[in-house]
Amino acid sequence: MILRTSGLRKHYGAGAGYEAVSEAELTLKQGEFVSIVGRSGSGKSTLLAMIGALTKPSEGQVLLEGEDIWSLPEKALADLRCRHMGFIFQFFSLLASLRAVDNVALPALLGRSTTAQDAYLRAQNLLLRVGLEDRMFAYPGEMSGGEQRRVVIARALINKPRLLLADEPTSDLDEDTENDIIVLLEELRREAAFGMIVVTHNLELAKRADRMFEMKDGVLTAADLPEGAFHPVRPERRFGHTKLTVPANIVRSVDGARAVYRLGENFWAAAGRALVFGGLIFALVLFGNYGLARYQRHQVLMRKERLDALAELATSTLKGEIASVVSLGERHYKQRSISKTPAATSRSM
């Protein structure tokens, strides 16, 4: 027994409020596949979130290998999510700014339990396993819905979890892709022997489980699997390589931890371009300033020289010596200087 829930209850709002999940009891054995079906709003996603340590139950316990996970501090809870659980969500849950290989390697990198080299090697391995060896460096926006979902599955398994929690793993997918994903999950479960809880309203998927539960108005009840309901895997839709090793050419192209150094290179490149561009503009400003400053200095110098010349002229006029004074009539004389001011001036006295 790897998981057991006891009296799990989730209540929203004060007072009467809303009871999303009430008294849910569930057990899961190593390698077991349990499905939970129910209508939208029945509380199955909330139950899965409580089991996955994503939302705290109002009451009850979630025991993972005998330990109550909700008694753990937040850091330990984060580590538990990282090392023991894998999540597949019903929406496209890849980080848009990261490539497929980065998305898959990220939980291992965050977990701090492995080197970047190992994390990327395992990520490549898993992507190869889910048939995406040629899409490792694609961004989510460049991938189809089915490819994205396979990347999410690879990411959920990167830390070799004991428990895989899948919330509507085939929603928004076409029938063929849906089948591909179901087949892939089953194959992987058989290979890695992790326990799997799948929440779905897809009855076909639910019927493949070892045990099926039904959720109705927050109440979880066991449902009988119909006789002969199980659909065998269609052999023609098997995925990728069965041997979990990475071809040498891929190893060379990714080279393990080097991929982590490529994270953020967009920013550094953009920052470098911005700084170079800014530097060029600034150099132009400096150049312009230099030219303008020289021109202004020249103008100031010219002005100063002009003023000095005027001052000199005024001073020299004052210092001029009178060469002759000629009377031009009553109280009117003509004066002539011998230096600086050659022009004669006349004045009345």
Partner: peptide, 16 residues
């Protein structure tokens, strides 16, 4: 190494 990773992740977000 974790700090380096966080810096890279942040830079990746900024760049994208």
């Amino acid at each position: 190494g974790t700090l380096f990773l966080l810096l890279r992740l942040a830079a990746q977000n900024v760049g994208r």
